[in-house]
């Protein structure tokens, strides 16, 4: 298989702190790949190593078939988590500038900057300075600067944070457009629903270590089934149900996990009369649940290891 990105045993330390520990990944071309993990888990450090902003202490990274990522810098697009623009530059100029830094000739860069701004509804802003824009608009401009050179691999660090619903949809369409044109998109996020809807593959990293990686369906397989419930009423009633080991209650929606050998039908029967049920669905756990459980398990393992080490 042809991979857009492979990492082999990559480790990065900052002083005594290990940010990424022995990470190996294969990211196929043409897919949407989600990087999941808590804040500080090591996602951004991984991405920065891929972008050759940092260099790994150990392990190898091959980007688009090149062992040295800095050779293919121009074929990558990168939207960092912390987004900023030159306040005094005009929007058209700054997008074109990013394009030129990626090796576009000035004429092409200027033309594409104009096209992109027009296509994504910022046509009137071409000659306005960045300082005049709202945060959301600024973020849009930055995304356009990321994709102007039509790179083969685009890495977006938290692309959805700080966007309103309309702009989130625009960002989603943009990611899907890129996939459709055969490009590879990697994005990191905390929002499991978003990842669930968009990603072909996901990986999760917790405290510098890879927890799982693979196609979305595979990641969810082999885990406890759960009940997904849409309801109205008092959620407290959910906690005292027979045969339910865990409850993930969001107020109108809840995910219930069963104790071994418990019967979903018994749960349903117990629920009737306590809350008003709008949907009752027995299925694989949501990515959200997978994420939370993985964090719990990983923490338990680490605690156990620490306790063993302490003895």
């Amino acid at each position: 298989m042809d991979y857009a990105l492979t990492l082999d045993g990559v480790t990065k330390r900052f002083g005594s702190f290990t940010a990424v520990d022995d990470l190996s990944l294969r990211i196929p071309r043409g897919c949407i790949y989600g990087f999941l993990g808590q804040n500080g888990a090591g996602k951004t450090t991984t991405i920065r190593m891929v972008m050759s902003i940092f260099h790994p202490d150990r392990g190898t990274i091959s980007v688009l078939g090149h062992p040295d990522a800095s050779e293919v810098k121009d074929r990558l697009g990168y939207l960092p988590e912390e987004k900023g623009l030159y306040k005094k530059m005009k929007t058209g100029e700054i997008i074109a500038y990013f394009g030129k830094l990626k090796g576009l000739d000035p004429a092409t860069a200027n033309r594409r900057a104009k096209e992109l701004l027009t296509r994504y509804g910022l046509g009137d802003w071409i000659d306005k300075k960045c300082e005049a824009m709202s945060k959301g608009m600024g973020q849009k401009v930055q995304v356009l600067g990321t994709i102007i050179h039509e790179s083969e691999l685009v890495i977006l660090d938290e692309p959805f944070s700080g966007l309103d619903p309309v702009n989130r949809d625009m960002m989603r369409d943009l990611i899907l457009d890129m996939k459709r044109s055969g490009r590879t998109v990697i994005f990191s996020t905390h929002e499991m629903e978003r990842a669930e809807q968009l990603c072909d593959y996901v990986m999760m990293i917790h405290k510098a270590r890879l927890q799982f990686a693979g196609p979305l369906a595979e990641v969810r397989q082999g885990r406890d089934f759960g009940i997904q419930l849409d309801y109205d009423g008092d959620g407290a009633a959910l906690r005292s149900l027979p045969g339910v080991s865990r409850v993930n209650d969001s107020g109108k929606f809840a995910e219930l996990f069963l104790a071994p050998n418990a019967d979903p039908q018994a749960v349903l029967a117990a629920l009737v009369g306590k809350v008003r049920i709008r949907r009752f669905d027995v299925r694989e756990p949501s990515l959200h649940e997978v994420f939370v459980r993985t964090v719990e398990q990983a923490n338990q393992k680490l605690e156990a290891a620490a306790a063993a080490g302490g003895r």
Binding site: M51, K73, Y78, P80, F98, L101
Partner: peptide, 13 residues
């Protein structure tokens, strides 16, 4: 401080 540096570093050394 306005974090533009990271975008720049993804394109230039």
């Amino acid at each position: 401080s306005n974090r533009i540096i990271e975008v720049l570093l993804s394109s230039v050394s």
